[in-house]
Write a protein that binds this DNA or RNA. Sequence first.
DNA 1: GACCTTTGTTCGCTCATCGGCGAAACCGGG
DNA 2: CCCGGTTTCGCCGATGAGCGAACAAAGGTC
Lengths: 385, 385
Amino acid sequence: MTPAPGSPGDVLTLIGAGSATTRSDLARLTGLARSTISQRVDALIECGLVEETENGESTGGRPPRQLRLHTDGHAFAGVDLGATHCRVVLMDMSGGVLAECEDPLLVAEGPEVVLGHVDERLDRLLAETGRPRAALRAIGMGVPGPVEFATGRPNNPPIMPGWNDYPIPEHFAGCAVLVDNDVNVMALGEQRNAFPGARHLLFVKIGTGIGCGIVAEGRLHRGAQGSAGDIGHIRVSGHEDAGCRCGNSACLEAVAGGAAVARRLTELGTPAETGADVVALVQAGNTQALRLVREAGRLVGEVLAGLVNFFNPEVIVIGGALSRVHEHLLAGIKETVYRRSLPLATHHLSIVPSRTGVNAAALGAGILAIEHYLSPDNVNRLVTA
Amino acid sequence: MTPAPGSPGDVLTLIGAGSATTRSDLARLTGLARSTISQRVDALIECGLVEETENGESTGGRPPRQLRLHTDGHAFAGVDLGATHCRVVLMDMSGGVLAECEDPLLVAEGPEVVLGHVDERLDRLLAETGRPRAALRAIGMGVPGPVEFATGRPNNPPIMPGWNDYPIPEHFAGCAVLVDNDVNVMALGEQRNAFPGARHLLFVKIGTGIGCGIVAEGRLHRGAQGSAGDIGHIRVSGHEDAGCRCGNSACLEAVAGGAAVARRLTELGTPAETGADVVALVQAGNTQALRLVREAGRLVGEVLAGLVNFFNPEVIVIGGALSRVHEHLLAGIKETVYRRSLPLATHHLSIVPSRTGVNAAALGAGILAIEHYLSPDNVNRLVTA
DNA sequence: GACCTTTGTTCGCTCATCGGCGAAACCGGG
DNA sequence: CCCGGTTTCGCCGATGAGCGAACAAAGGTC
């Protein structure tokens, strides 16, 4: 069942979201009596979730005591596992970054090695910030492949050999662990940080591959098998010759992904191997690279145009390695989307570059963890315990 | 705020969904005391929402009194407005059809004429079934164009001249009116009637135009501007010569819609004007028509393949005029989807013809009305009043 | 300094909910 | 046919959560 209205969890949600900073605000918003609110707040302070700061501004009467999340004593981790790197961010309850680190690490080394590394890094970051391991409440993790979110088990991930069906949460005993696809957590992070008002948002990651995180009604849409957002293998017209690693041809990823652009550039006489090489060439002013990036944008835009008609988002965020040269990429994308999508859907549509940058996935994963811990259900459990 | 757990609304939801048929069931499911449940049930009986039938089967002790929705005394209407027809269905609270009617009616005649017609038909159906007008609790309506759902106003509908921004609900005073796109209500009806277990479902309507209703997490996804699901103008590869009424070319609708197939058939020497003509030709065994329908299926399948990767539904339902020859249409669709979509997404995917047929939109609209009336919030309001 | 405004707490009161008890209803065994 | 076992359901006293009034605290205003 849904939690009761005005429960401690709801009260905390209002404080955490910044909708209410005083007891009076809470009474007004929830409709509960001031005395009841005081009880709730006392309970939340009791168990360390809320703290009182000094008096706020008077509006003519007694100045209200300000309330906010009690960030000390709780820590959350966001983990970004990429094909070749591991980024760990330690966050407080309000989403602020306490410490972070990144290391090269091959996800292909398998779960024991990689999760051991994460564990060690977590300990180090906790020590750096002077917190005991017990302060760590929840871990969010983004991984480069499909995951069954409910159980935290990767589902036949193509670039994570040895991880299939591995129960990641069991590796971190005594701590809630939420595992999701990396693009999903990036979408979540971007929506919560940069576009809290947007209920429907797409996050498109253009790196070696191309993926999409979907926020619908303010929540992540994962689909029936958790594979939603896999747009890298949607067909684009006029490129039947481009073979893809998935076995089909004319996949978006095979013509507009970082690796594909690099390969074409090589064919044209400018050696490049990865998306990063392409970015470097564009930044150095190579016009051929620039032209190809813009063309890649058009191809991505062709697919997005269809998805805009289908999904009708308010915001599309473009991220990933290639987005470092987003002026040119975005130009191609916008050109095609605004030409090929319906006016009603594009009229209020924003297409923007990612604002969270390299930390996007780790931050989003941390937010996943924090929101889980601060969900009304969980808070009610904590308070009554 | 969310309604309290175990509120009258929740209790009614459990009874309505068939999850609980006795007081004991309710106590077990809600966790409330048996005495509390009795109070709730009494209140619901008091205001005519629930009725007690005679004793059920004993399981060794006293046989429980069965509970079910009290369908008498409440009526709901589902209205399906098409470009050239108007279908009205009168339903009881459990979704059963009490009476129905259909008339040819041009939506282009404008809101006053059309809604006046609807009003008159409603009165007639109510009289037929011996119910007073006051028994009508809510009206659901599906219209052939985009609608702002919250206000029930059409939003620049291309084939509904005179309806732009017209406040449809105001025409039916004293009765809740919910207006949505016709494809959305068809999707809802199909999901609730035929696939209650499917949380993510697409309903694709292939008629003159092509549209798609989206059910995500069991609820309709309407998108930011209420234009989600407009897949008729997604580009398909290799048909740059096909101009579309929207001004672009190579739109799905312009190559695979009923009108487009008919036009091609005409070009090939077999005169046809509408999708219905095409259906008739296929049913008569015309192999050219059959081939074109199958080809249309492939084109729809190409678009759906991308949407399957993006959205990852459990079920895709194919409806609309052309689906009367669904064997051939589905063959083309499945062929392409299973070839072009990712295995993870297609493994548990069903692609099936519509089961509700010609009544789909009206039934779905009625369900929209019933679910609104039986929503926990509304029921709590009714009970306390 | 008197008075007003706003905030926060204390303290009875009320009412919803709980849980136990007994009645009702049905089954099966002696 | 009677009687204990079992399950359902209404009644009723006990309980506790939430409410609102009254009061205390803290600041502004004239």
